[in-house]
Design a protein around this nucleic acid. Structure first.
Lengths: 347, 347
DNA sequence: ATTATTTACGCAAACGATGTCGGGAATTAT
DNA sequence: ATAATTCCCGACATCGTTTGCGTAAATAAT
């Protein structure tokens, strides 16, 4: 089954003209007589002619499309970011090709390879949590593929980056828990080597040391798959709950980790916040409806996507190599709700 | 800034061969001597050569990509469906271009036009709630563009369709409320002309009449934007709550309507289920964590996406026009939780 | 009337890859 | 030794579109 669209050739044939004349008539060239123009335009409209973008791409060496590579679409942060990306792309005449890595390094590499081979003009990238080898993306970038990183950035490549102030976000979230009277605060985050993990852990550590709170490396739990798998969160939580210094509060550093901790507490009947307070990074729009209503760090996902897409399109359309790179740092929003309410003074 | 990939021409030039020879060597043609083959393959590997898919598309008149048009990516049902689509596409060598209508008819038409103009080999469509004029999609389909509808189908085109048994899903959900003792059951759904709305309303009506429950058209509320806008849900709820026959239970027929009713009840302090029980269509994976835990009708979104993509690719790859169409009807799952718990006998 | 200019269009090349055809050289058959 | 066959490879057209260049006819300038 095949869809055959009408081409300039068809128009030329029926109208007894050459393809060049038709092409020029459609582009309203001064070289074409008004009568011919009218004939061509009328017929093209009638037949609902649309230029074949593939032929254009081949000729122009650009596809007017951008690739987006994220770990998972079914994640509120990323789907909101994609919304932002789409809004810009649509407006600037680009279309968006989306690929998912599912936090899997091999899938990431093959997705990049695909996007690369000239089918997209640029790439918006948020690396998978497994990725520690950046040679694929580095290779593409050094060959001239415009790349903008967002959220999870690659330090080793020098390009535009759009991130959230992860340090401050985690610092503020931790501080909020401290202020509300919690003493043993744990931090559960993504894979250790991810930029967002490192920055968030730094923020957490800084808040803890600033306030001279007790903590050690055991207070920090890592989820190599970003919490995508319930069991990895369960394991980390089991460790923490059973440890000598059982935490009375936890800060969850990703969307999936946040919801999986809630699930864990529900299953294990750990009351929040009385037995364990929590605040989590999340972009779900119904965290207020959870039981208990959830304190969250909310990232400006839509704006991040928008900004990243704008930067990418600027790079793509720039005539000369871009050398001056921007790192846009947007603030996250701290929303205080019941899950991190003031600690009840027991004893 | 431009990314210039290596081409067959470049290889031909450096190796002192013709492009045809290089092409044949890479495709392992018997016409090429083993030595030449080895030289070409080795050099291509070294330079990380990849055929330009755009050139291929132009020649083969196919792009190996499929378009997906949904109302909104940031919707758990659709993002899960897209996951299913992607899994099939990836495996069959297609890539996925995603477009959103945002429940806006004009955006839907322009997205279809874009996808159409030969840049995709087929389209997976779930129409927007505003759409009542199907001429664009009908036109494309009649010109030979393979289309598979899923979830929200277009009756007027005869093609493969993948849906949920909306009638039974709504019937069972309503019955569940009846069994749990609720007397005045309202139904809030999407735009009236959407297939899913009609089928779900039919299921609701059947359950009500079967059990001789009182209801009239005023018990049914419609949200033209599919609940995407809080205010439209608010208005419908206000009407219902203030009506003479105030409902004691409600069935919400879409993801967004479900969460917005919960939000409404929280804001207006309507206790669930004591003052208003509810069950809603939802594919969120944390409805159990809501307060109260939410009874839901869960659709097999991933499977639907998978099946729809499989059918579409079959259509695309079929040599002769497909005439025998399948309508796949999958069952939805009813999950009973606190929000629709047995009615407390007041009075 | 001759030349210069404008008008309005067609021809051909290009983008990258593939497939058809054809042909020179080497090998085998007669 | 000549004819037939095989082996390798190159030239060319093609997909749809744009664009530089060429040019016939019409008009304007001399």
């Amino acid at each position: 089954m095949k869809f055959e669209a009408i081409t300039i050739k068809d128009i030329a044939k029926t109208l007894g003209l050459s393809t060049s004349t038709v092409s020029r008539a459609l582009r309203d060239s001064y070289e074409i007589s008004p009568e011919t123009k009218a004939r061509v335009i009328e017929y093209a409209r009638e037949m609902n002619y649309r230029p074949n973008p593939i032929a254009l791409s081949l000729k122009e060496k650009r596809s007017s499309s951008i690739g987006v590579l994220v770990s998972e679409i079914a994640n509120s942060f990323f789907s909101q970011a994609i919304n932002g990306i789409e809004s810009v792309a649509q407006q600037k005449g680009y279309n968006v090709v989306i690929a998912q890595s599912k936090e899997d390094f091999n899938r990431e590499v093959s997705a990049l390879q695909y996007l690369a081979s000239r089918s997209v003009d640029g790439i918006l990238l948020s690396v998978s949590s497994e990725t520690s080898d950046f040679s694929t993306i580095n290779g593409l970038y050094s060959k001239g593929m415009p790349v903008v990183c967002f959220d999870r950035v690659v330090e080793s490549i020098d390009t535009h980056k759009v991130i959230v102030d992860n340090f401050m976000a985690a610092y503020n979230a931790t501080n909020h828990l401290i202020k509300n009277g919690y003493k043993q605060i744990a931090c559960i985050t993504n894979a250790a080597l991810l930029s967002i993990s490192r920055e968030r852990v730094e923020g957490y550590k800084k808040a803890m040391t600033d306030k001279k709170m007790p903590f050690d490396e055991k207070s920090i739990g890592y989820c190599p798959h970003g919490g995508l798998i319930y069991e990895e969160v369960e394991e980390v939580m089991n460790q923490l709950i059973k440890s000598k210094n059982r935490p009375d509060a936890v800060i969850a550093c990703s969307d999936k980790i946040t919801t999986n901790i809630m699930r864990y507490c529900k299953l294990k009947k750990v009351p929040i916040p009385d037995s364990l307070a929590m605040i989590g990074f999340s972009n779900l729009d119904l965290t207020e409806l959870l039981s208990p209503s959830l304190s969250v760090v909310r990232q400006p996902a839509y704006e991040m996507g928008k900004k990243a897409a704008e930067l990418l399109i600027t790079m793509i359309e720039s005539k000369r190599p871009v050398l001056d790179f921007e790192t846009v740092i947007l603030p996250a929003e701290l929303i205080q709700r019941a899950s991190s309410a003031k600690r009840k003074m027991v004893k």
